[in-house]
Design a protein around this nucleic acid. Structure first.
Lengths: 232, 232
DNA sequence: CGTGCGTTTGAGTGAATTCAACGGCTGTGG
DNA sequence: CCACAGCCGTTGAATTCACTCAAACGCACG
């Protein structure tokens, strides 16, 4: 089975190194590890479902997670990918608004909500830290809305590749943990459009695709340009 | 380039007494009113700009606010509308990721961030309350991503009308505060598509449009159906 | 050596966009 | 009071970008 960066062969729970994302460190990190337990989920295993009670929340130790919403006819939108070090599944409501699945074999730290909330009552810093992380996710979501509402296929793919590169690699290439279908559902495109656009970017010399899930950056400046970045 | 950043109707900062209680529940509401001041903004006046320092945050007392992001070529995405009682402008970062403008003449309660944060340090409940509101906005954003990524024009318009009805009316009709352009930029459509789709919904007897910004619901069940709601 | 899944490629279609013109309301000034 | 300008919104025609439908490819695995 495919192994993903951050996954450990021995299955031991360790704080994930500083590499990725919103909140690896801090008091919450320590707290969660002391009051949570670690579970393994196989590829495509459901971690929780839409409308299920939100009694727990979660932190990715290794692997990768997607959260998604479905329309009744099967159309799917992936709201976010979560990578090692990131928390997910906390909601105001007592039922989940999303479902969450493991993208590849993953270790997930599971924390009982009520246990956590008791701790939080006593320590303002904990709440502040969680709030900060929630805000980060909100900002990401709002950024993603600009992409979904206003960008064309090329711009979406460029933004996606750069996001993934920033979040899980510091070299000139990325190994994507997710399928083309996941990418499509994240970017609001079809699988065919994702594939065609990637092929086109390769033809144009902006990237190379030595294996379908491995992307090598050949002209990052051009990708940055597509990504706009600079608002008026 | 868009230059409808209008002038502020009245730049004067007036202390705002406890009368502000429009959406008034919770300790935060009281706190904000005691440490903030109320300002008036005219139609299309900029409240803050993208990349400006986020030294303040805000609460709508009356009127309506949009937050938006621009691409360099002028494409705009409205991330959210804020109606009376709602807070906005709080960010993790110390610069705003969005710009905010008044949609119509509006009264906005302005609170210095640092002042608020000092208060928050002492009172865990305040942080929790703000966090809860942040989560609500995150959930709305994630819902909106499903719309932007996966819904067609009719479904977007239906969802929009129902959202607005739920948020600012409890009768069988709504008075929309925003222009067609704002609606288009919120839904990721063009102004023409918004107009055509509304006309079509009227022809089909689902709504009536006695004035361009007044929408009367004639068949809410049909609109609900378009809005899906029920996930698989 | 098939079988199955994920991915790529091709051809044709269609929903929303672009471009363009028109209609209606409001406020202003002759 | 009417003429006119400036918005805002609607409608029409043509275009386009991404979608749908369809087939083939390549790789892993039994």
């Amino acid at each position: 089975m495919l192994h993903w960066r951050g996954e450990r062969a021995d299955g031991k729970i360790v704080p994930f190194p500083a590499a990725a994302g919103t909140g690896g460190r801090g008091a919450v990190c320590d707290l969660l590890e002391s009051i949570g337990s670690c579970m393994n989920f196989g590829r495509n295993a459901e971690i929780f479902g839409e409308d299920e009670p939100a009694d727990y929340f979660y932190k990715v130790v290794s692997g990768a997670v997607r959260i998604s919403k479905l329309l009744s006819d099967g159309r799917r939108q992936i709201g976010a990918f979560y990578l090692p070090g990131e928390m997910f599944g906390l909601e105001t409501d007592d039922v989940h608004a999303f479902s969450a699945e493991a993208i590849c074999d993953s270790q997930i730290l599971v924390v009982k909500r009520s246990t956590f909330l008791v701790e939080a009552k006593r320590d303002c810093a904990i709440v502040t830290e969680i709030w900060t992380q929630t805000m980060t996710h909100l900002q990401r979501a709002q950024n993603h809305m600009l992409l979904l509402g206003r960008k064309n296929a090329q711009e979406r793919i460029a933004a996606f590749l750069l996001e993934m590169a920033a979040r899980l690699s510091h070299t000139g290439e990325v190994e994507l943990p997710m399928s083309r279908q996941d990418i499509a559902d994240y970017l609001g495109l079809t699988i065919e459009t994702v594939s065609r656009t990637l092929t086109q970017l390769e033809r144009d010399g902006l990237i190379a695709i030595p294996a379908s899930r491995r992307i090598v950056f050949r002209d990052r400046a051009a990708l940055d340009l597509m990504n706009d970045s600079l608002a008026a």
